[in-house]
Design a protein around this nucleic acid. Structure first.
Lengths: 338, 338
DNA sequence: CTGAAAGCGCTTACAG
DNA sequence: CTGAAAGCGCTTACAG
């Protein structure tokens, strides 16, 4: 079933069919209507390879996840992000090509191959690093790309980001409002930009509110390291009265660890998770968490990429909806200590 | 950068370049070596659209997830499955095209479009239903497809599956070994084949071990319905002494619900989760769970699909590694009741 | 073993 | 408004 069949059936040339199908001028309204009807009757769909070859557009965008398979499964973030991206892409006949790779080197290799194969028209970048080698490669290759993260750390590539600073302030304010003075933090990987931004915001808040602690332990986001970091923080003297965790999995692991050490949450220790998820709601007590609409975040990024591919000059650093703090049962008044 | 450039540089025709690059006979070894060197020097990669158009192979396979975005994020299953599929595909230059849709109707529409566009060479089917309209559509379209699930419910389409029956037997045996006689089950959606298979296995085990309960409540896999189902089961008299849940999220929700109702796990109620995950390990107490290597499952399915696409006649119903029961702290001796 | 050519199914300038 | 044709970058029969 090709435009050739349609042309024969409608008594016109292939060119006319193409114009009619693509809404281009060059055919009369009557002819166009006739051609469209024939195409519909025959159940015609454009061959994506032929269209890609002659238009130099693949009709697909790429997303690469460079995380070990275990942590990928554990974090709900990625699946929600993908859902959001898809929600936007599937409004058009644009496909999402997904690849899972072990490290950044493999990720860069995949972009390079995709681009020289012309397999995708653009790419979505996630897990932005403070120093991110991918950004330079993408710019050099000339792939239209949009970055999740930021702001201002991607060398001119457009990005969408959520405001970590405001969110961190809300968290610290909430804790200060509960009389907490010794607040610690279990962070993710140091090289990730969002970790870095939260670091800065946390340190600024520590000074602003004149907190007494402010120690931060870095991890790989895994529950094992979340547990180890919690043990480390809870061996300090005096103890922190609240800990902020960089993801839901570590927060749950940390809360469990604290309980094992004989602390009662929230009486003895307040716990805040970053990125709310079902996990935070299912644990006992349910965790106070920073909540973002990750699907909307993904959709937002996809939309920006599509605009970029279509030649628009998108805003650099579009800010997404601000995260909100969902207060549950894991935060309470700090105990007055001796 | 095309084979034309390589041909010019190497002083041969495009045809010779194509033969050399694809390992076809038709060029001398010396020429082949020279051509390959030129191609490498120029950093050539085949244009995927051109190759797809002339070879009628897209170099991609498709996966469609038809679940609401929320439950997608909550279940670790899918991301692990995708990781496994990717691990196999990325050994070759085969891309994974992913789509997230709201329902089966949209899923069928997407297959139809993909196939008439020749965007994918084959498809992977998941969440198999007892009566599954997709199977017929796929067969009719002639898309090479492999089904996750089964066995024997896919009208000739090859499938990989894991043995739900043996796993269910292991679960029930474990509970019976702990003197449980009143065992209930919180199942997933009734129309899903794996739910159905577990149902049958559960009923068979109930009879075999002469259990006194065996009631099953169906849900949509969500924690909310898991909680409601648990409440319902725990309002019976006499109470079940153990509940088997069809996924990790509901098991955790159910355990929490039981605790809220004043039951202590495992003293008053034993809980078993199906599909182990970090969730099961992080709750207090950690949950006894049926564990499968979902990544291997995904890889297995991808490999079968690639063979099918390459023209092999794959075995129908290849069985994957058997699931295993991981015993943790949520199951214990049944209390002797009055 | 090599060369010259047709063809995959589209898009798009170029003449009429 | 329409027709006839070239071209996208590959693969692959067909002659020599």
């Amino acid at each position: 079933m090709t435009i050739r069949d349609i042309a024969a059936r409608a008594g016109v040339t292939k060119g006319a069919v193409s114009f009619a199908l693509n809404g281009q001028p060059g055919v009369s309204e009557a002819t166009r209507t006739r051609i469209l009807k024939v195409a519909k009757d025959l159940g015609w769909q454009p061959n994506s390879a032929a269209r890609a070859l002659s238009s130099s557009k693949s009709g697909a965008v790429g997303l690469i996840l460079a995380r070990p398979a275990r942590t990928l499964g554990a974090e709900q973030f990625f699946m929600q992000l993908i859902s959001g991206i898809e929600a936007e892409l599937s409004k058009r006949p644009i496909a999402l090509v997904l690849q899972v790779v072990p490290d950044l080197e493999a990720e860069v290799a995949a972009y390079t191959r995709w681009w020289s194969e012309r397999r995708v028209d653009g790419a979505l970048l996630t897990d932005l690093r403070v120093e991110d080698s991918r950004v330079g490669v993408l710019r050099e290759l000339g792939i239209p790309a949009v970055v999740f993260g930021g702001p201002g750390h991607h060398d001119g590539l457009p990005g969408v980001w959520s405001d970590e600073t405001t969110a961190m302030n809300a968290v610290v304010e909430h804790l200060v409002g509960l009389d907490h003075r010794r607040v610690a933090r279990v962070a993710g990987r140091r090289e990730f930009l969002h970790t870095h931004l939260r670091d800065q915001a946390f340190q600024a808040a520590v000074e602003q509110y004149d907190l007494l602690d402010g120690s931060t332990v870095y991890t790989d986001f895994s529950p094992a390291e979340g547990e180890a970091a919690t043990r480390q923080l809870l061996s300090a003297d005096p103890l922190p009265s609240a800990i902020i965790f960089d993801n839901d999995v570590m927060a749950v692991a940390g809360a469990r660890t604290a309980a094992e050490l004989g602390l009662q949450i929230p009486r003895d220790l307040s716990v805040v998770a970053w990125d709310d998820s079902i996990l935070c709601q299912l644990t006992q007590p349910p965790l106070t968490a920073v909540s973002r609409d990750i699907e909307a975040y993904g959709a937002h990024g996809a939309r920006a990429l599509l605009e970029l591919i279509e030649g628009a000059v998108p805003d650099i650093d579009v800010q997404d909806h601000a995260p909100s703090l969902v207060v549950r049962k894991s935060t309470a008044k700090a105990r007055t200590r001796p």
